[in-house]
């Protein structure tokens, strides 16, 4: 599974009710859901109900966002392995915050599977899944430049806004550059996994590719800086962000999200 940065950005330029929501609202929704999920108790069976409701809500939003299913699956496939790996090991671990363990299976080499470990592994993975879903929804429906502008409107310091603006602007330039370098290498039959050539030589080629990209990005940075100076850039310069009014639909979706979190928390269901 592979999702390139350009494919990811392409999804954000679709038209849908979710794409149309203001970036600030989407950032606040993602932060709200993530912080709430992380703050949930570590060991509580009821968490599954809460997490299930939140996940269902996010999937409904994802459905209305008209994001390609293959894109969503690919994004999950990239994001899940590390979290899945740690969650899978939980049944074999004695978590320090749990005092009584019920052993449900004894394995060779002194390994034990505990009921509490299985439960904790399942809870931590479910929480992680909800967090990843909210991030995927955000990044599939909001372009990177919109994210930076929205963050600036939410109070991101101007230095950081400048850094991110420049970074986002050139991310795709370098991504395409790396694509061209790789194509050129392929035409010369360079294959990173080829074991018929000495390892040292392969490492050197990788090193030269990285050097090339580093120098090119540095030189692009210099040129950009020079052209900015020509246009009157100074240390006190600010990134211009146009004022954008929030619509009633923006407030409505934020209210619905916060309402769902509140309802889930007070266990109306």
């Amino acid at each position: 599974m592979h999702v390139s940065i350009t494919e990811m950005e392409r999804e954000t330029y679709k038209k849908s009710p979710i794409h149309g929501i203001d970036g600030r609202i989407k950032i606040l929704m993602t932060l709200g859901i993530t912080v709430y999920v992380v703050a949930l108790p570590r060991m509580e069976t009821l968490d599954f109900t809460k997490l299930g409701i939140l996940e269902a809500y996010l999937f409904v939003l994802m459905f209305f966002s008209r994001t390609e299913l293959s894109h969503i699956i690919a994004r999950f496939a990239i994001a899940l392995p590390f979290g899945l790996g740690i969650s899978t090991l939980q049944p074999f671990i004695k978590q320090p915050f749990i005092h009584d363990f019920t052993i449900i299976s004894l394995l060779p080499m002194g390994l034990e599977i505990t009921r509490e470990g299985v439960l904790y592994g399942a809870i931590i993975f479910s929480k992680f899944f909800v967090c990843i879903t909210s991030v995927i929804l955000l990044s599939s429906t909001t372009s990177m430049s919109e994210l930076v502008a929205s963050s600036r409107r939410l109070g991101l310091p101007k230095e950081m806004a400048m850094l991110f603006t420049m970074m986002v602007r050139y991310l795709f330039v370098f991504w395409n550059m790396l694509g061209r370098i790789r194509t050129a290498q392929k035409t010369r039959c360079f294959e990173i996994w080829n074991r018929k050539v000495p390892r040292k030589w392969t490492l050197e080629q990788i090193g030269y590719t990285i050097s090339l990209l580093f120098i090119r990005s540095y030189e692009q940075g210099e040129r950009t800086y020079q052209s900015m100076l020509c246009r009157g850039y100074s240390a006190d310069a600010n990134v211009y962000v146009n004022k954008k009014k929030l619509h009633i639909t923006d407030f409505a979706i934020l209210a619905v999200t916060l309402g769902i979190i509140a309802v889930v928390q007070v266990r109306v269901f």
Partner: peptide, 25 residues
């Protein structure tokens, strides 16, 4: 004022971090 330069360079570093290298190498 190196802020713009660092922004562009960060984009380069992000991209070069996508070059995966086999550990068995």
């Amino acid at each position: 004022n190196m802020i713009p330069l660092f922004g562009v360079l960060a984009a380069g570093i992000f991209v070069l971090q996508t070059i995966n290298i086999a550990a068995s190498l």
